[in-house]
Design a protein around this nucleic acid. Sequence first.
RNA 1: GCGCCCGUAGCUCAAUCGGAUAGAGCAUCGGCCUUCUAAGCCGAGGGUUACAGGUUCGAUUCCUGUCGGGCGUACCA
Length: 582
Amino acid sequence: MTRQDLLDMNLKRELDLQIAEALEKAGAIGAPALIKQSQKVKFGHYQANGVMAAAKKLGMNPRELAKKTLEELSLTQAKEIEIAGPGFINIHLSNDYVADRLSDLNQQASFVLPVSKANTIVIDYSAPNLAKEMHIGHLRSTTIGDAAARTLEYLGHTVIRANHVGDWGAQFGSLLAYLDQQEKSGEKTSTELKDLEIFYQKASELFKADEVFAAKARAYVVRLQSGDPRCLELWRIFITESVNHCQAVYDRLNITLTRDDIKAESAYNEDLPQVVEDLDKLGLLQLSDGAKCVFLDEFKGKNGKTLPAMIQKSDGGYPYMASDLAAIRFRVNQLKADQALYFVDARQKLHLSQVFAVAKVAKFLDESKSFRHLPFGVILKDDGKPFKTRDGAAVKLSDVIEEAITRAFDLVSEKNPELSEKDRIRVAEVIGVGAIKYAELSKNRSTDYIFDWDTMLSFEGNTAPYLQYAYTRIQSIFRRANISPLALEGEIILDHPIEMQLGVKLLQFEEAINAMIEDYQANILCNYLFELAGIFMSFYETCPILIAEEPTRSSRLLVAHITAGTLKKGLDLLGIETVEQM
RNA sequence: GCGCCCGUAGCUCAAUCGGAUAGAGCAUCGGCCUUCUAAGCCGAGGGUUACAGGUUCGAUUCCUGUCGGGCGUACCA
């Protein structure tokens, strides 16, 4: 393998290829090397776990196969390779090799190599309901989806952000019916969102409790859908007001969504009859209690009953199944999407699997497209009970942001009073917002989580401020020494065990990004950055930089510089900013 | 009823799709600021991975069952 070949891969891939080749020469045809980063220092930097399974298949002693494999292997990267336990191959990288790779990394324009073929990827995320203010529950989809968008773009894909906001349907029927009722009783109405929020709650209660009101609300949906001018006028006022509110939240949170990314549910209204007609032409529709449904065998339960996918209601209205199908067509045909990622609440799992299944049967989607639901858990209260979004107990997102920034401001004022007020305000925004987003991103996406002010707004331990702090410490070194990182010269030397550990970790950035992208688990990238920052903190304590002799001094400055760049880029992929001082 | 998800330290969470002695943070306890920012570092205690079986060299991970929790289950989205 040439040097360039190695540079085109990350450590894991290059080891994987070489060991798989050696395994093959040793007689295990087609056996995977199963390279993993070792969990413990004594097991080396990487380990190959594939020998045991391969030996089993061949009826060989695994340690014997490991030995034969090593005889076929010459790794220039390693200073030591050993066979351990039942047949693990442990690889200890050589300090010089890691130092060389690190120098190369420092010369590169990017921390990752662009993908060989760029895909067009639609990312469906955030999607708030415009009838309400954004609440804490929107944080998940919004932050995780945004991190995915940033990361895929960084890797070279074409990303299309799709904010499928809810601006249509029965909820607006309730709202309009309530408003109308109020107007008739002579109360004056307001279109401020804060008031709309209250309207919505009241309307929602009435809808559940009062059959007459519910019927009226449904009638308003029909009026709205049929283009009644008065209804449309009221509706437009709501939407404009609500979109402004959402955009303000996005801007505050450093979310890359803009108004241009909104493709609302109502935007598909005109396509809906066509969707129904096309499904009908394919003979997929059945009339069931007056509603037009698709029945697919894969949704048949043990009781033999098949779950319907309703495309058109008995009153002629369209449920969200219809607009979701229209959205798929739009994404495939107009946007030319190769993939679509839906960052949507786990409770929508059944719904989305029906949508995808119907789309496939109807050939809206073919096998070459990958449309995936990336579900996430719901928020619970500290007693483990679910946070209901319509009982008035939802925590407003804008309140959380406000609280985080206030707390961060108090803290930065206490820790670093010599900063100007202007700087402290800026720092507080970056830290406060970073803390909130990191609290979301650092948890496993798919499980439920408990909302707790103190945990979410914590600035200690495994939090964004810890990472931001590591970054400022590095910047502070360069400031103090009055050196530009670009002016750094000399070799990288990784003599100290911590320096070596840091060096290897830095080379694994791309591996962390790839692992994250596999299943869009941002917590994998968070963990990586936290470990990187942790190793850097140890390095900072044990390896003095500015008072070190040359060439150690320059080497350590270089390592610190690469660390800063990695932290900054990693946080950037998560949508979290950095500051120079804090 | 049926379907899906979950159960790991006191609390909040990890564990790189089956790997080695299950790791962090918070909280608790003990050290470290006349040296580059103490939002930090070093160390200690804390576990029958809900329970019972099974599969195999190896199980938190896969299978079966039990218990416990959550969500979904056609005219809300």
